[in-house]
């Protein structure tokens, strides 16, 4: 698929370059764009949906407790409040677990559909980390073959200064080749085996 022209013509992303959160988000978004918009993979929202579901249920418990306490003032509502409070904090525990062991920094799961739609989708997973006060961005690309379920991954670590100019404008034109190369390396490895 040829990169559509408007992707490269978009208004460049400008951020506060001293804000590590904003740096990571800009880089993550850039890597996402390469796989989804330029290579045309399909995003799988399962991981994010899981997190959204957990948060929604937790807030649901809190809102229910608020409503119940309003309808049946305190001493009466005690048992319901107790249940809601326990459920809420258990859910917060599960959410922490989910973020550390299930999501673990994965910000994109993309599916590469077989052109003939005969074989199961190949799965590409992007995972990144950028520590606070650290200028090294670690990006891991993992590839899971849909047919054999074999998994391979490579990681690069680059200084964020490579991809931003002095004003904090994200240089997608410099970042894109890096992600592409990472992807190509994994793909060619696939062909060698």
């Amino acid at each position: 698929m040829a990169p559509s022209k408007d992707i490269l013509d978009e208004k460049p992303v400008k951020i506060d370059k001293w804000d590590s959160g904003a740096l990571k988000n800009a880089l993550d978004d850039g890597a996402k764009k390469v796989l989804l918009d330029i290579m045309g993979f399909k995003e799988s929202h399962k991981l994010m949906n899981g997190r959204l579901f957990l948060c929604t249920v937790a807030i649901g418990f809190a809102m229910f407790a608020l409503l119940w306490d309003y309808l049946y003032p305190f001493p009466q509502s005690r048992n319901v409040l107790l249940c809601c409070v326990i459920s809420y904090f258990v859910l917060m525990g599960i959410l922490t677990f989910y973020l550390t062991y299930v999501e673990r920094g994965i910000f994109l799961v993309a599916l590469e559909q077989d052109k003939a739609r005969m074989e199961p989708d190949n799965k590409w997973t992007l995972q990144s980390s950028l520590r606070k006060y650290d200028d090294t961005y670690h990006l891991t690309v993992s590839f899971t073959d849909g047919k054999t379920q074999a998994e391979r991954s490579t990681t690069i670590s680059r200084c964020v200064a490579n991809f931003f100019d002095d004003n904090g404008t994200f240089r997608f034109d410099l970042f894109q080749p890096v992600v592409r190369k990472l992807k190509e390396d994994l793909s060619s490895e696939k062909k060698m085996n």
Binding site: H45, C55, L81, C84, V85
Partner: peptide, 30 residues
């Protein structure tokens, strides 16, 4: 630059800060 899911998470994030305070308070009540 956020998509729908990220926006929703943003709202949830705000909701969770409020909810955590609320649930600590209700927990203390109990």
């Amino acid at each position: 630059r956020m998509n729908g899911r990220q926006l929703y998470y943003q709202v949830l994030n705000f909701g969770m800060i409020v909810s955590s305070a609320l649930m600590i308070w209700k927990g203390l009540m109990v």
